[in-house]
Simulated scan of single mutants.
Amino acid sequence: MLSNSEFVRQSLELNLFFMRIAKEHSIFLEASFTTRDYIFIEQSEMLKKLFSNLLVETIRMSEGLISQEAISSGELVTDLTLDAERETQFYTNIEINLNITRMEAVLDMRSRSKINMNTVRMVEDLNNRAIMAAEQIAAFKSNVLQNMLSCRMFTTNYPLLIDHILREAKFYLRMLRKLQNREEFDVAREAAYQENFWNRIMAEHSKFIRGLLDPTEVKLFDTANDFGRRFDELTAEAKNLANNLGILPEVTERSLKNAVEIRDFKKQGTEGLVQCKIKSIAYPLLGDHVVREANHYIRMLKSFKQGEMG
């Protein structure tokens, strides 16, 4: 059973990461609908506000309670997040609360806060509300996907992207429920599960990047295509881990090496989008979003190598 301190730390770190991810998924969805589907635009806006409010609450609760590794990992915000948000707001006319990013950027671990039963109860309540919000956005994504696949709706997102972000919502829910039950993770088996999950996510990021580039960006297209191939291979390897945990260290090492490389590629691409140097139909915030997901995965892989849960 998880200790109170581990329950609080892991819960807050999970929510800080995934609430921002869900908030941005809502923005990407809202920007993708046609005016015919104004009800879906309104629902996306409502979900964006829901996760924005939850994220503000989580940031305020997290001061002195999360790890330095999480703060310095680049999974919460990066040095490009604010510019990426500002430009995406300009392009879409969707309001983005830039103060949330400013709040997260100054999260400090120099003074540790003490955990008492009131803290634990507050985090339990936060997790319960996060579960309800995650269930809500998962149901919304599922509805969108069903409408797209049955040709009842057109959006500028790929059906695979909707399926991709739906799987992320379900992953978030899985982690929240395990934390609420105070389950201690079997690190090796959890590493095998997460490497299968995140390697597939990284492969799909590569393919989305490839598909959003202008056809003239041949070099970037080829690099993205190569990353897609590499992470498809890593996903296939990770699927076999459940039956052969003995190869986990070498798969983890290869996953980490490639995750660092694709993170650097994504960061370079995001810089190019922010500086208007890359021809693409991707919003700058989407670039920063996938950088942060890679940073999260890198932190998790490093913790798995040490036999710990991040």
Rank of each mutant, 00 (worst) to 15 (best):
S3W: 01
N4K: 07
N4I: 00
S5M: 05
E6A: 15
F7V: 02
F7K: 08
R9E: 11
L14I: 09
L14C: 10
L16D: 02
F18L: 07
I21C: 09
I21Y: 14
A22C: 13
K23D: 12
K23C: 12
S26R: 07
I27G: 01
F28Q: 06
F28A: 04
F28V: 06
D37N: 11
Y38P: 03
I41F: 04
I41M: 10
E42S: 10
S44I: 08
L47V: 04
F51Y: 09
S52L: 03
N53R: 01
L55T: 01
V56L: 08
L65C: 03
S67A: 03
S67P: 00
Q68K: 10
Q68L: 06
E69M: 05
E69T: 13
A70Y: 04
S72P: 11
S72Y: 05
S72K: 06
G74M: 02
T78S: 15
D79C: 03
T81C: 02
L82I: 15
D83I: 01
A84L: 12
E85P: 10
N93I: 11
I100K: 03
I100C: 07
T101Q: 01
T101C: 04
E104F: 06
A105Q: 12
M109R: 13
M109C: 14
R110A: 09
R112T: 15
N118P: 00
V120R: 09
V123L: 10
D125P: 04
L126R: 05
N127M: 05
N128A: 11
N128S: 14
R129L: 00
A130N: 07
Q136R: 15
I137K: 00
A138N: 07
C151P: 01
R152N: 12
T156D: 06
N157C: 06
Y158C: 00
L161Q: 11
L161F: 15
I165N: 02
L166E: 04
F171W: 08
F171C: 02
K178I: 00
R182N: 02
E184W: 02
D186G: 05
Y193S: 10
Q194C: 13
E195C: 10
R200V: 03
R200W: 05
I201R: 03
A203I: 01
A203T: 03
S206D: 03
T223H: 14
F231V: 12
F231K: 06
T235N: 15
N240V: 11
L241D: 03
L245A: 09
I247Y: 11
I247W: 08
V251C: 07
T252P: 04
T252S: 13
R254G: 00
R254I: 12
K257G: 02
V260F: 06
V260A: 02
D264G: 10
F265K: 12
F265W: 14
K267Y: 14
T270H: 05
T270D: 03
E271S: 08
C276H: 09
K279S: 05
L286A: 10
G287Y: 09
V290C: 01
V291G: 06
A294K: 13
N295I: 00
Y297C: 05
I298Q: 01
I298V: 10
S303Q: 05
K305Q: 14
M309W: 08
M309Q: 13
G310K: 14
